[in-house]
Amino acid sequence: KNAAKIVNEALNQGITLFVSDNKLKYKTNRDSIPSELLEEWKQHKQELIDFLTQLES
């Protein structure tokens, strides 16, 4: 999976991924984040940080 797909899947579940101080963060109104999503974010962390940083610049 690529970073764009992961970010879109998160958005579809009401979760916004973003970068703050070079760290991957998220915002959501959900009570909890599915563990498989958290695991996927960890596996692709640097790719996600790079992707989101490019989007914001």
Rank of each mutant, 00 (worst) to 15 (best):
E36A: 12
L55S: 14
W41F: 09
A3C: 07
A4N: 07
N22P: 01
Q13H: 12
F18G: 02
I6V: 04
N22D: 08
Q43M: 14
I49H: 03
L11G: 05
Q13V: 07
L24K: 00
T28K: 03
E9C: 05
T53C: 07
P34N: 05
Q54A: 15
K27A: 10
I15Y: 09
L48T: 01
Q43H: 11
K1E: 09
G14Y: 04
V7R: 03
V7T: 03
Q54N: 15
E36C: 07
N29V: 10
N8R: 10
L55V: 11
Y26P: 01
T16A: 06
Q46M: 09
T53H: 07
L37I: 07
I6R: 03
L24M: 03
S32G: 08
G14V: 01
D50K: 10
Q13S: 07
K45V: 14
Q54W: 10
N29M: 09
W41L: 07
L52Y: 02
L38T: 04
L48R: 00
A4I: 07
I49V: 06
I49Q: 03
H44C: 06
L37R: 03
N12E: 15
L37A: 04
A4E: 15
Y26V: 05
E40R: 10
K1G: 12
D31V: 12
A3H: 02
F51A: 02
R30I: 07
L55N: 13
L38S: 04
L11E: 07
G14A: 04
S57A: 13
V7C: 05
H44Y: 14
E56D: 14
L55C: 08
D31A: 09
Y26N: 02
K5D: 15
E9F: 06
L52C: 02
K25T: 08
S20L: 09
L52V: 02
K45I: 15
W41P: 00
K23R: 08
E9H: 07
S20Q: 14
F18K: 02
Q43E: 15
K23Y: 06
D21N: 11
Q46V: 08
S32V: 11
I33T: 03
F18N: 02
E39S: 09
K23A: 10
K45D: 09
S57E: 13
N22V: 03
F18D: 02
D50F: 10
K25C: 11
S35N: 14
L52R: 00
L52M: 03
N8W: 14
T28C: 05
N22E: 06
Q46L: 08
E39G: 06
K1F: 14
Q43A: 14
L17V: 03
V19L: 07
L52Q: 00
K27V: 10
E36H: 13
S32T: 13
V7S: 02
A10K: 01
F51L: 05
K27I: 10
E40C: 10
S20A: 12
L52T: 00
N2C: 11
L38V: 09
K45S: 13
L52I: 06
E47Y: 06
K42Q: 14
I33L: 07
S35P: 15
K5C: 09
